[in-house]
Amino acid sequence: MNPSASLKLPDGRRRLRLATTSLAGCFGCHMSFLDIDERLLMLIERVDFDRSPFTDFKKIGHCDIGLVEGGLCSVENVQVLREFRAHCRTLVAVGACAINGGLPAQRNHLDLGQILAEVYRERPGLAPGSAVPDDPELPLLLNRVHPIHEVVQVDYFLPGCPPSADAIWSFLNDLMDGRTPHLGHGLIRYD
């Protein structure tokens, strides 16, 4: 583990460590993150990426900021979220799905048992004897999808589907500079 505290910026400030993950999301928020384009170069002068699809680190270390895309639809989502909460000083719910369940939560008025039965057993065209997969490697689904703030304490919400690159950039700059993030009109969007 690389203790980030030892790494200083030229102006004496500490480099920050940032982790990101996508739970029950579509990676759209991560794509939007990448849309900050050349500003990524400015970002990596100030932060080190820890666990993230951008680094492919498998385990999370102690981080300053954790960005969580997606809501909770499976046991694994809950476990990853808890690891993030345990390792990040500041945890951010990024995007509609992390914030209110988003698209995946639109299954919440349906019975999960019926959904699984329909998909794996009753749909036309399935092989005879098709069953709901029961491999222990597969994370089990939750009865209902939940936003992440219902399971762990969330420090900030960055809304949008996805939040625009400008919103993400503005938000991160506020965080990095020690300001309470404030988006304002045009950047605060739920769609």
Binding site: I99, N100, G101, R144, P147, H149, E150, L158, L183, I188
Partner: peptide
């Protein structure tokens, strides 16, 4: 920016 309370769905 977020719902603050729990969702009723």
């Amino acid at each position: 920016t977020g719902p603050h309370f729990e969702e009723f769905y």
